[in-house]
Computed example of a mutant assay.
Amino acid sequence: MFHSIVPPYLLEQLERSASDPSLRARFRQSLQHDAVLRARPAAGRETAAAAGGRQCKVYDADNGTDLPGTLVRAEVDDPSQDLSVNQAYDGTGATWTLYKECFGRDSIDGAGLVLTSTVHYDRGYANAFWDGAQMVFGDGDGEVFAHFTSSIDVTGHELTHGVTQYTANLAYDGQSGALNESISDVFGSLAKQYAMGQSAADADWLIGAGLFLPGVRGVALRSMKAPGTAYDDPRLGKDPQPATMSGYVDTEDDNGGVHLNSGIPNHAFYLVATELGGNAYDDAGKIWYGTLTSGNLSETATFKDFAEATQTTARDLFGDSSTQLAAVTKSWQTVGVLEDQTRLMNAAQIELQPSTPPSQPPAPSTPRE
């Protein structure tokens, strides 16, 4: 159960474009590690205390690959002198707080699971991942990526893979895999927004803002507001995410385009949240969370399945005539997942209209005397 924040196609592009042999080797090593980790079964899970509640633990791999490493900070400890340790602790804590205070969920499993993180994984490792049991952060390659602990939304994204694992358990392939990725982006962004007290209008809607080092032409790994615009750099290439179904990428790479096509449901959520206004973790977040945890999604759910499920959740929470249901419907229509019935009806009416004007009626006959 390996899920990384940086997709393999981006690391492959960086390996191809790197002119420095040592930098090329770092990206190749990151790719090789990821390939091994995808094939490795998840590590054993640490159980929570009976009382549940927030329990964050941060370990240090000391640039090795043995997990979890040496425990360096837990709930009772003062802040560390190591910035990465504190960032990992704060990010996991912020994610726990979002789920607890906004959705009533105690940790990612709903039963107080300890949130375990490991920092300083390997040397120059350019990624962060959820392995089915814990979070793992690399320090970055030093040229393109900074430390992966620096973005709360990255931590929230990876931990949300755990929430999906314990709830809908969406298959990591094709559209269900893209939904898996999108849900992680949604709640990763919400974790940052909640921690920073941002409304939907105030939020940047970026995933991984701050990961790129100076000189990289990009603002983040992904943009939910404008998929396809997060970066455009000679080393990275151009952000390939589509925002609507018209740009859907049919590919066998990246588990069927899970990091690519996630831009479509990402944009749908952004449209719902900004249409409703206020805080995205309120009504919009409750609709997405209710859908994820409803038990009504199959593991192979398509975009349309998920869109219709969010309509059902919005209807159940807010009613048939609610602005929330209208916003959900409109957003999925805008990204091309659901058909716009009004537009279809108008098109049908136009089609039924005659193409030439009717002939003139005959002149009235002269009355007989």
Rank of each mutant, 00 (worst) to 15 (best):
S4P: 06
S4D: 08
V6K: 02
L11M: 13
Q13L: 13
L14D: 06
L14F: 11
A25Q: 15
F27Y: 14
A49F: 00
A51R: 06
Y59G: 12
D62E: 15
G64N: 05
D66F: 10
P68S: 12
L83S: 13
Q87P: 11
Y89M: 06
W96G: 02
E101V: 07
V114Y: 01
L115A: 08
H120R: 13
R123T: 15
N127E: 05
D131L: 10
H161C: 10
T164L: 09
T164S: 07
Y166Q: 14
A171H: 11
G174S: 11
D185Y: 00
F187N: 01
Y194P: 08
M196P: 02
S199K: 05
A209K: 00
A209N: 06
G210M: 05
R217W: 08
V219W: 05
L221K: 00
M224V: 03
Q241N: 11
D254T: 07
G257T: 12
Y270C: 04
L271F: 03
V272G: 07
T274W: 04
K286V: 04
G290D: 02
T291V: 10
L297R: 01
L297E: 01
F303Q: 04
T312Q: 06
T312Y: 02
T323Q: 13
V328I: 09
D340V: 08
L344Q: 14
A347C: 03
L352K: 13
P354D: 05
Q360R: 12
P367R: 09
